[in-house]
Design a protein around this nucleic acid. Structure first.
Lengths: 329, 329
DNA sequence: ACAATCTATGCAATCGCTTTCATTGAATCC
DNA sequence: GGATTCAATGAAAGCGATTGCATAGATTGT
């Protein structure tokens, strides 16, 4: 037997297809007994509305796109999960696209999404915003972890939390800091670096800038090597993955954390709580991030002409075991 | 202006919509000059066929579903990427669903996919096969990393590679082994355990079974603690993530790897090559896995009545630095 | 030169659903 | 009690593509 349609159900219940449709979409327009009969029949037949047919008439795909630059970076699975959860609540599946760290792929893949999704969420893109904008021509679009004046965006604002991290370290006696910068094409990396620089300027501390390093474990190893060539007693890593790499590198060289050096990460990925020492890091409010992103996109879909929204959710500094008192002297 | 359709293009070029459609789908049926004109007009208007309209008439969604049990486990991003790459070649976007480690969610989410995708790939499910089968009623379906007689499946067969790993360790003088088992609902875990047991029986070695442990870094820490309470000099971890946890735990207790104990992982996730010591592990042929999975599913979609296919791709043992000679004594 | 064959194109039905408009019978109002 | 409103339903028109069938020229064969 082929799939059930509103027609089979209609025939079965002795009503018209329109009534069946209404029983699902505007149940208040259908009398209770009829509605129940229809719903029962539908359940029995395992009816699933054809999203193609529905999409054709409503002009909605009933789906949103999510583009991530690198799904193998542990930050993004967390984001994917948060967004999927939020999208689930508005009953909208998400189509995931991984750009495999290529800016060109981002543009190509976003363009390919046109017409298949109602809108697209682009997380931490590497590609220039203008190219993305063009690729997403006339489809609702919101940036994650990057802001761009004419585009909606939602970001996790770590500025205050990084200040807190700095103060925390300062309070522990640290006076010389290293900044282990992230990829130069990353807006978030630039912004984090800037926040740290600003904090350092406001305090009488020395800040040594190192990098850029790749946002990977291996990039962290490199950063660790570089860090050891400086006399900084505390370091800000671009993200947790990098911080884990740094820790591993230092451990490999017999440098104790936090006894000899303190490290703070950013993002609070799963690994951060699992490694030894547990990472002091800036925790991103993932679930909120996902929820707000989906909300903004949904609004954009429903009212495409509105002004772009810009949401910023603050991260919060979570001290754990990778930060401690500065070595005397 | 609203989106371009075959009608706008047809009018623009002075041909019928049917011809426009054919220019895309059966170009050999359209004369060269007309075809060029149509294609040019389409490009100019930025035409994208409506997948809803197409889907309605062809009965195809032009999309495949991929369900993973836990996207935060680093094995799955790799798989997602491999599958996405393969699906890209057949020009079929993939809809990712993360079940957040819940068997119930797997069933619910698979059911929700009906009609939205042409077929679904279910990776390493925790839910019972019968429930999945029912949820996926009358839609093409292939299992990854699990076999089930009446369902198509493609697995990475690590049996031989685990034998190799065993032989490698045996050659290094190890005689007492620990098996750190994975989650009990995981088919792959059961199979790996079985392979190791079989190998151990064929050799005069002692095998201590520990677990089950969760397939996470923390699960690995637990496994590490358990391992230290035994006198095994070598251990098989269920997967790399667990192996990393074990290494961290042992390192934390001052136990050297591979000097004091040897560890082998499984899967060869990115982290495996990045940690210290680099993990000896069983490398899964990810790209092939993705390619074959998509091939099997595609075949299933095109010929739904064929017999289920069962593909097994062998993993290969990759010795690195986490395995070494057994301590004398 | 005329039938037979091809080639390129158009016509129109169809996919399954949503939604506007019309209709019918019942309830409400004065 | 007749006019008015209302609630519940049905009829039918699309949404944008694909595709089987029909057709008009052009080409070929004898």
């Amino acid at each position: 037997m082929s799939r059930a349609t509103i027609y089979s159900i209609a025939t079965m219940c002795g009503v018209s297809p329109a009534t069946v449709s209404r029983a699902f979409n505007r149940p208040e327009l259908v009398s209770a007994p009829v509605r129940d009969r229809v719903l029962a029949a539908a359940a029995e037949l395992g009816y699933q509305p054809s999203s193609a047919a529905r999409g054709l008439v409503t002009g909605r795909a009933g789906m949103i796109g999510l583009l991530v630059p690198d799904i193998t970076n542990p930050f993004f699975p967390l984001l994917v999960r948060a967004i999927q959860r939020a999208a689930d609540r508005v009953d909208s599946p998400v189509m995931l696209i991984d750009a495999e760290e290529s800016a060109a792929a981002e543009v190509r893949l976003v363009a390919r999404l046109r017409g298949r999704v109602d809108g697209v969420l682009v997380a931490s893109p590497r590609a220039p915003a203008s190219a993305l904008r063009e690729a997403a021509r006339d489809m609702p679009f919101v940036l994650l972890n990057r802001v761009q004046r004419d585009l909606s965006s939602v970001i996790c604002d770590n500025t205050a939390a990084l200040f807190d991290a700095g103060e925390h370290l300062y309070g522990l006696g640290h006076r010389t800091f290293a900044l282990l910068a992230g990829p130069s094409a990353s807006w978030a990396a630039a912004r984090r670096s800037q926040a740290i620089r600003r904090w350092a300027r406001g305090r009488d501390v020395r800040l040594v800038e190192l990098g850029p390093f790749r946002a990977t474990y291996k990039g962290g190893r490199r950063a660790g090597e570089a860090l050891l060539r400086t006399d900084a007693t505390a370091a800000f890593a671009f993200d947790d993955l990098m911080a884990c790499g740094v820790i591993a590198e230092l451990a490999g060289q017999g440098v104790a954390i936090p006894a000899d050096r303190s490290i703070v990460g950013c993002d609070d990925v799963l690994l951060a709580q699992a490694v030894t020492p547990r990472l002091s890091t800036v925790t991103a409010p993932m679930d909120d991030l996902g929820r707000v992103a989906v909300e903004v996109l949904t609004r954009e879909i429903e009212a495409p002409e509105g002004a772009p929204a810009h949401k910023r959710l603050p991260g919060v500094f979570t001290p754990r075991d990778s930060t401690g008192p500065a070595r005397a002297g």
